[in-house]
């Protein structure tokens, strides 16, 4: 028993907060029940017919094209959001202008809107004969039913994630740090690149990860504007629904499992990048 106590000491840090056992137990069972168990069920379903069946379902040409569209689109949309969202956060924090609070409130709208509403709104705007769709079409730019339309929908839903993660960091950024940089001879450009940007980078990466995750999994706001042509504008989540509607549960689970693994890999990579950035700045 003495040995057991010693062994426990090695990985729990002695602290003044009681209830370590209880809180760890709660955390693990909650995570198990709410996250791990459904995922386990998914994998059981996906591999129920053996690995060969899984592989066939998860790597069919139509499915591969949908992965490329979903992940490629989400990465591009998240990258776009990092630039646009950071800029928006900058404007909201640094400038005082009439209507600032309204703009600030509008940012959260993509969070709150039911996805179908977003989808219909975007289609009404950008679809053929839409408010913007018609003039764009006369310029030879087709948005609806193309990957471009999907990208726009993904940018729309991901924007708040970047703004809301970067904004508080910008708020906390000390004006003195910029003043000291200027007094040392740095231009505005140098101050931004060498002082402000590195401070924002971890928050920007978090925003990127969140925006990416949301865009990969997005369904409702995309399918209306996507057109859903196989191999061209068919996103992976839609394909899962199609398989389900055909009662092909095994194939749906296989695609879902493949997406899950890929998403997890991407998020892990972003997390790694974030740790690297933080370590470089002495924040760990």
């Amino acid at each position: 028993m003495g040995e057991a106590v010693l062994r426990r000491k090695a990985w729990t840090r002695p602290g003044i907060l009681p209830g370590f056992g209880l809180s760890l137990g709660y955390t693990l069972s909650y995570m198990g029940l709410m996250v791990a168990l459904p995922l386990l069920a998914l994998f059981v379903r996906a591999f129920g017919g053996g690995f060969a069946a899984f592989w066939r379902a998860a790597t069919a040409p139509r499915v591969i094209d949908s992965y490329l569209l979903s992940f490629g689109g989400a990465l591009i949309a998240a990258a776009t959001n990092v630039v646009l969202g950071s800029l928006l956060a900058w404007v909201l924090v640094r400038y005082r202008f009439p209507g600032r609070r309204v703009v600030d409130a509008l940012i959260d709208l993509p969070f709150a809107l039911p996805t179908a509403v977003t989808g219909i709104a975007l289609t009404a705007l950008l679809g053929p004969g839409g408010l913007l769709g018609r003039p764009l079409e006369s310029l030879g730019i087709k948005v609806a039913f193309t990957p471009l339309g999907i990208g726009i929908a993904m940018v729309f839903i991901g924007l708040p994630f970047v703004v809301r993660t970067v904004q508080p960091v910008l708020d906390d950024l000390n004006a003195e740090v910029e003043e000291v940089a200027a007094s040392l001879g740095a231009s505005r450009r140098q101050t931004f690149l060498l002082v402000i940007l590195p401070t924002l980078l971890p928050a920007m990466l978090t925003g990127f990860a969140l925006a990416f995750a949301r865009a990969v999994g997005e369904y409702g706001s995309i399918i209306f504007i996507a057109g859903n042509l196989p191999h061209r504008t068919e996103i992976a989540p839609l394909l899962i629904v199609i398989k389900l509607e055909q009662y092909d549960y095994a194939a749906a689970a296989a695609i879902a499992a493949a997406m899950l693994i890929a998403s997890f890999a991407v998020l892990l990579a972003i997390n790694g990048a974030q740790r690297w950035v933080c370590r470089r700045s002495g924040r760990i």
Binding site: N174, E176, V177, E179, V180, A181, S183, L184, G185, A186, S187, Q190, L194, V195, P198, T199, R280, S281, G282, R283
Partner: peptide
Amino acid sequence: GFVFQHYALFRHMTVAQNVGFGLRV
């Protein structure tokens, strides 16, 4: 040269990078 009350050091830079900042720019 301006030294602020709370130093305003660049948190993401080492001591050497902080001191060398004025020369680097």
